[in-house]
Amino acid sequence: MKLTPRETAITIRGLYKAFGGHPVYSGFDLDVKRGDILAIFGPNGCGKSTLINMAAGLLPRDGGDILFDGREVAEIRVGYVFQNYREALFPWRRAADNIRYPMRRMGLPAAQVEARLQSLAERFRVRFDLNRYPYELSGGQQQLVSIMRALAVEPEVLFLDEPFSALDFETTLSLRDLLQRVLKDLGITTILVSHDLEESIILADRLLMLTRRPTTVADDVPITLPWPREAEALAAPGFMALKARCLDVFQRAVAAA
């Protein structure tokens, strides 16, 4: 896939990362298009979290560059949604204060903080009381609060590390639905790590399938299904064909290892 520099939001070049002498990434390259949702799918331990943590600046890299429109991660606004919402939200703050927190850190004036909180609550059709503490909310509501918190700073890039893997199927479906609408509305460049193939396809503009360590790209699949993709899209022929192709690639990649 050829991208012009103007279209590229994230550029990864010659990425190198090793743990205890064993490389996870050795000369890894990737370009992510502005506004795209990129899903990363791969076996356990192949380095999906390692990749987005390096990109988000949470983990140092051992070599190579990760640039966002030519800038380092410290110079841009990012959002990050952790898999384990229970350990990511601040339980001593009410849900609304959790969402206000990054905006206050940014130094936004109070009126703007409230306006953004309001608009996020509307976008995500929040019907529960945001003045509750996180532990008083259901798992799905807590993860929704995490997502709102990550989006509150209007990030240039959003990272999601298996955001739905601790939630039940029904909750996952409704959260996926809300998330894709909002991300496509706002046009936020997103990297989503998932170990659910259906989810990766339904939420993404592009699916990157990774191999076992040392990690390489097994396949790079453009997903051109029309938006919005509702639950029925899971049964559409285009979706089925993509899923069959990805399963095939996955099985060959795993068998080869």
Partner: peptide, 28 residues
Amino acid sequence: RRTRVLAARIMGASGPRILVDVLIWEAL
């Protein structure tokens, strides 16, 4: 909880800020 510290960092909290906003609460 390491995740909370990372979450605070990504939301722009500096070292002393993390101490006041996260570590002390976590230790309370």
